[in-house]
């Protein structure tokens, strides 16, 4: 494997904390990702929230695309080659590189998702519990959930620079 060349493009409105480990070619849209550890070309959309200790890894050669308004909670690990919009990966959940996520999916707290073959999750799929059971979310409360996510991102954009040292975004 050739050595990873570091190349970051951080949107001027994105908030990236200084302790974040970034490796390889990474593009971050307007939003807030504190503390991921990726390697390989990764493009993160706008309005994403990446919490403490979250790990985002690209296992493949092609670009890993993460859509808008996703929430990656504390200590989760995501290796999916594509992630749609408005997904939630809860605390300490692990998603293997064979799983692609579409939109509005929820991976519950501490869940380990390892499909043996490549799989694309349908919209509104929820994976939960110790045995990774699945259900389809009715979509009820979607507007409220997205409203909360948007306000959360807005709050963090305002508050994080007051208490944490940030990485400067150079690109747009």
């Amino acid at each position: 494997m050739p050595p990873i060349r570091d190349k970051f493009t951080i949107h001027s409105k994105a908030v990236v904390c200084q302790d974040v480990e970034l490796k390889g070619d990474i593009t971050i849209g307007a939003g807030k990702p504190p503390m991921p550890l990726p390697s390989g070309p990764i493009v993160i959309g706008s309005g994403c929230i990446i919490e403490e200790g979250a790990i985002i890894v690209n296992r493949r050669k092609e670009v890993m695309r993460i859509g808008d308004d996703n929430l990656f909670e504390i200590g989760c690990r995501v290796e999916s080659p594509t992630v749609g919009n408005c997904n939630t990966v809860c605390t300490r959940a692990r998603v293997h590189h064979t799983l692609r996520m579409s939109s509005y999916c929820v991976i519950g707290a501490g869940v380990l998702v390892v499909p043996t073959e490549d799989e694309m999750l349908d919209d509104y799929t929820t994976i939960y519990g110790p045995s990774a059971e699945r259900r389809i979310w009715s979509g009820r409360g979607k507007v409220q959930e997205m409203d909360l996510r948007r306000k959360h991102a807005e709050y963090l954009r305002e508050m994080l620079p007051k208490f944490n040292r940030l990485r400067r975004g150079d690109g747009t």
């Binding site: 403490e52 504390i74 306000k151 959360h152 807005e154 709050y155």
Partner: peptide, 16 residues
């Protein structure tokens, strides 16, 4: 350990 205050929206305002 990670200790983090909880957040929610209450009456339309987001807060920790």
């Amino acid at each position: 350990c990670v200790m983090r205050p909880p957040y929610k929206t209450y009456r339309g305002n987001f807060n920790y």
